[in-house]
Amino acid sequence: MTGRSIITGRRKRDSTKSKVKCWIFVFSLLVLWSSAEGAGTAAGTAVSNSVTIRFQIAGSAATQTIESNTDTFVVDRVADVRIDWMDTAPVEAGPGESDRVLRFLVSNLGNGDDNVSLSYEHNTTDSFSPPPQNVRLYRDSDGDGVFDPSSDSQVSLLPLAEDANATVFIVADIPSNPDSNLSRDGIRVASSWTATAGPEDPQAVDVVVRRGEDLAEGIYRLRDYHLESYKSATIHSSDGQVHTGTRITYTIGVTLKGGAGAIHNVIVSDTIPTGTEYLPGTLTLDGTALSDAADGDAGSYDSAQRLIRVDLGTLSQSAPGETSREIAFEVKVQ
């Protein structure tokens, strides 16, 4: 008579996500404003200047007009690439976890197209930092700001038009035995353009490298809190043995342990053991009765699937310690 408990939880900070989305929105507006305001004059544009002068010869009432020469220079190409880490806080990661994501924005601030190369910058002094073989770089191909392996594509060379930008992700598998709490790794970007050598010509498009390379680092923070659970059974019989008709109370405990943090959407599912039947109206959460129907409260019993389901929502604590919830229900041996 064993039961199977399934505890699911999504480790994320909803409020943080909202803030991140907000900042992404604000940043996007700023980038758009910046692009609209500061789109540099395109390389190769001829910029001319000439002057008109009007005057009178002393003693004459006639006005003469003459024009100057036309001075022209051609706008040179400027290479200017930039990368920024876009997560607003260190990204939590547990030892051995897969596909942990850091988000970056790569911008071409030059006045022409650029093929920006990307390379992972590994911090070798830190065993928490994912080694290069554990890291993939992805472009946010669908532009939603969220990593999705089915729609985003791995990338090492990023074509960017003038004043364009793109989100890229570090997707890493976290080492199993880190000996520090924070990692610091990043992406180095480099322009495909190199400065023109030789004499300068006002009529030729030379290449000027303003910022040929840039580096941004992101941080993983070792998650120091986790969920633990247990399940126990209390047999209600005078001899302590299980007989037909004996009631058994099952208790499932779920505890958030460790440092400050939150785990969201924690759902406990438990299948009623074979050879027993659920006793209606016995489901409780922290001693408070829950209805068996799938209604407004956190619990329900699905008789077709013989499944107890309790939605614990968010387990959180603002200081290191333990935060527990306890579910109980009764069955009768058939």
Binding site: T41, T45, V47, S48, N49, S50, V51, T52, I53, R54, F55, Q56, I57, A58, T63, V75
Partner: peptide, 14 residues
């Protein structure tokens, strides 16, 4: 001498 000298320089749109 030249007098009433007026120099006009349009500023390129770029």
């Amino acid at each position: 001498n030249i007098e009433k000298v007026r120099i006009v320089n349009p500023i390129n749109p770029h």
